[in-house]
Amino acid sequence: MAIRRFFEQAYLYHKGRQAAFNAEEFVLLEVGYPLLTMIFHCLIASYCYGTNDLGEWVVGNSFLLCVNSCIFGLGIVFMNERYTGRIRSIIASPCNKIALILANGIFPAILAIIASFLGLIVGVIVFQIDYSKVDFVYIFISIIVAMISASCFGLLLGVLGLLTDSMHMVLNMMEGLLLILTGAEFPIEQLPICVQYVSWSIPLTKSIKAVKGIRVGDYKNYWLLLLLELLSGIVYVVLARFLFAVVEKETRKKGSFDYY
């Protein structure tokens, strides 16, 4: 009962804010653009490091493909609800706010999983990466975990949109941080120690490390890293719920909910 409602809401959120007009546009938006970005980053890496083995970067950058739907897509969800005057229905209704937050994330998470997996496959083909020794099931599991975590993070950012109109700036900065700090482009060990703490607390870092590990036959920390990634996802959602309550109260005091 509650589950049917949850998934129906997830579908309606997805359909209701889908920006693309048709299938071609949708594919270009969700797959074409991110793939080009990924190829761009891999080419830079091959140039900088003077290597032809781009396995490291293909993995990291295919994970980063989720930025499109998880960070930019989810990060503006609640700001848009505010701009369209729909937020008042949400606030004034007795709905369960944690279910509401999660329902928003379901479809973007699925899209992110598809985009990452496609990215990985395209990357492997384009850059002729040797993955013969790696079990793809492990990679697939880590992609799922990573995208769940990234979506939860995007939702946490999204809640900020109840408060501020500057979400585009926040999200662009977040994209930059993810590029620098997740270890997708270069090893996080090269960063100052205090910045490494930030690296570990943002999504993707752990799962990228897990996959990079199994690529060289190191399965030892794989499950631990994924568990940590999943746990951080849960922490993001719990934080999002608390933040929602705080921000709701704050905006009711300030009167900055919507424009009408």
Partner: peptide
């Protein structure tokens, strides 16, 4: 409220109402 905001333009009238009734936890 009067005005043209507040509904999902990309959903049908029926879907909009399904969405809002879910917010009020109406049983199916």
């Amino acid at each position: 409220f009067g005005g043209e905001t507040g509904v999902y333009r990309r959903l049908t009238a029926r879907e909009n109402l399904r969405y809002f009734s879910n917010l009020y936890m109406l049983n199916s």
